[in-house]
Each structure stands twice: as structure tokens, then as C-alpha cells.
């Protein structure tokens, strides 16, 4: 079989440049849409860019290619991040990003696999992605398929009980072709995660559930790449990367602002934000 994958990017500076472009496109989409989730799309951007453009094998011209690595955005509200990446990767024309959240657009408010081939499963109701990732990893293992599965969750999302059901499953079945990421931006809609419903000590919890845990600065591209390499090398147990991140990362006036969880930028804010990202 001819394997057509985008050339993987290994250069850190190049990955950082892609991440800047992705951030600008996220904000463009949200501004055009007039609604959507700004903070959590920006916080997970660096990790998601590293996974897609430096680690994963995939083929946008054949999204169902059976040896593709799989990606599940369990925190489905960060859909603009996924769409910006998939547009950049070539899954659909770049102009499609002008239609986020518009009626009959493939870019639904939360990711929908029916509308965009390459989205593995629909998400949006939190807590479900890790279970699906486990199922995929088990299926691939049954087929001796070397493909890997990546799954990004939110930190607030780990308040969902199903996450811990799935965490038990991953360890019980020694699923090591899966790498999970917790986007640990410490904020959720109603406020700081620790005030709404504390999840700490998050590192110890995952470890106690039988996972190999790597805590990193989720905006340091070199650390991210190192953690992803480590995850791949760990055998016999699942790996989770706790990516310590800043909600709204890259735009000073969005950073750590809980009010930008589910609010889109105004045109004025967008113009200012783009300048900051470009100069950052």
C-alpha cells in the first residue's frame, strides 16, 4: 500500500510557527462565528500541534487509511483547535474555517464525524473520548496494527466518572498503544477547577490508577516532544501526559481569564490578538 502522509515536522521552531498559525486561525474562526470556546482551544494548541504534525501518520486524501494514527478530542468544545489543525493538514479547504458554527456547515459547534472524514468520533458531551480511545487501541492490538491512539481531555473533564472507568480499563488491559493528555489549564466554566470540584493531586491519581504519568509545561515544545517520545517507549501500561497549560495561552488579555472559556473574540480583540501572537 502506498502510504501518503504529510512530512512530519521535527524542527522545534517550525512547530512553534505552525502553532502560531493554528492559534490565529482558531481566533479567526471564533471571531467569524461570534461564539465558541476560546480559552480551551488556545491552551491545548501546542500539544495538539506536536501530536498531529510531529508524531502522527495520517493521510487526508484517505482519512480511513487503516494504519493511520488516531486522534480523539475528548474535550470537544475545543473544536476550533481541531478544525484549524485539520485544515492546515489538508483534510478540507482552508476557506471552510469561515463557516464555523454556521447552519449546514461541516464545522459543527462540537466535532462531528459524520460531517468531516478524519474526525474519528463525535465528541462534545464530556468524559467519553478516553473510552472510545481504549476501544480503538484494543481493536488495533487485535489486528496487530502498529498505529497509535492519542486522546486529549480537559482537566475539568476528569470530574466525569466515566474518565476513571476508562482509566481503569486502560491499565487493566495494559493498553500501551494509547497516549492520553490532560490539558491542565486549571479553569472551567464556573471558575477555577479547584474551587468548583477539586481534582488534585492529579499526577498521583493517574499513577494510582496504574498509568505512567509525565507532567510537563504544556507550552514548551521541546518538553512536549520529549514526553510524546517517552509515551511511545513505555510498554505494558498506558501513558498520560499532564500538560500544565494556561487557558487562553498566546493572547495576554485572554490568559487565565475564566470569562473567555466560552466567549469568542470581538473584531477589535481579534486584531490585537493576532499582533500579539505574531510578535510572540
Amino acid at each position: 500500500m502506498t502510504v501518503m502522509t504529510k512530512g512530519k515536522i521535527t524542527d522545534v521552531q517550525e512547530l512553534k510557527n505552525v502553532a502560531k498559525k493554528i492559534r490565529i486561525n482558531i481566533l479567526h474562526m471564533l471571531t467569524q462565528a461570534g461564539s465558541g470556546h476560546t480559552g480551551g482551544s488556545l491552551s491545548a494548541a501546542d500539544v495538539a500541534v506536536a501530536i498531529y504534525f510531529s508524531k502522527m501518520s495520517f493521510n487526508p486524501d484517505n482519512p480511513k487509511w487503516e494504519n493511520r494514527d488516531r486522534f480523539i478530542l475528548s474535550k470537544g468544545h475545543a473544536a476550533p483547535l481541531l478544525y484549524a489543525i485539520m485544515a492546515e493538514a489538508g483534510y478540507f479547504p482552508m476557506e471552510t474555517i469561515n463557516n464555523l458554527r454556521k447552519v449546514e456547515s461541516p464545522l459543527q459547534g462540537h466535532p462531528c464525524c459524520k460531517h468531516i472524514p478524519g474526525i474519528e468520533v463525535s465528541t462534545g458531551s464530556l468524559g467519553q473520548g478516553l473510552s472510545v480511545a481504549n476501544g480503538m487501541a484494543l481493536g488495533l492490538r487485535l489486528d496487530n496494527n502498529p498505529a497509535k491512539v492519542y486522546c486529549i481531555m480537559g482537566d475539568g473533564e476528569t470530574q466525569e466518572g466515566q474518565i476513571w472507568e476508562a482509566a481503569m480499563t486502560s491499565a487493566h488491559y495494559k493498553i500501551d498503544n494509547l497516549c492520553a493528555v490532560v490539558d491542565n489549564n486549571e479553569l472551567q466554566i464556573d471558575g477555577p477547577v479547584e474551587e468548583v470540584m477539586g481534582i488534585q493531586p492529579i499526577h498521583d491519581k493517574w499513577e494510582a490508577f496504574g498509568w505512567h504519568v509525565i507532567s510537563i509545561d504544556g507550552h514548551d515544545m521541546e518538553e512536549i516532544l520529549k514526553a510524546l517520545d517517552e509515551a511511545e517507549s513505555v510498554k505494558g501500561k498506558p501513558t498520560v501526559i499532564i500538560a500544565n497549560t494556561t487557558k487562553g495561552k498566546g493572547v495576554s488579555f485572554f490568559e487565565d481569564k475564566v470569562e473567555y472559556h466560552g466567549v469568542a473574540p470581538s473584531q477589535e480583540e481579534f486584531d490585537k490578538a493576532v499582533k500579539e501572537i505574531r510578535n510572540g
Binding site: S131, V132, G135
Partner: peptide, 22 residues
């Protein structure tokens, strides 16, 4: 796959298995 007493996880896992052709 015995999923233990965890029906929500069972359904998600089943969906994932289906997505790999099972």
C-alpha cells in the same frame, strides 16, 4: 472484554472497537 461494573465505559469502548472494523 469484561468491562467491570462500568456501563458507560463499556459503550464507549464498544464504539472504539467498531471504529477499527470490529
Amino acid at each position: 472484554f469484561n468491562m467491570g461494573i462500568a456501563e458507560q465505559d463499556m459503550i464507549g469502548t464498544a464504539a472504539g472497537l467498531a471504529l477499527t472494523g470490529k
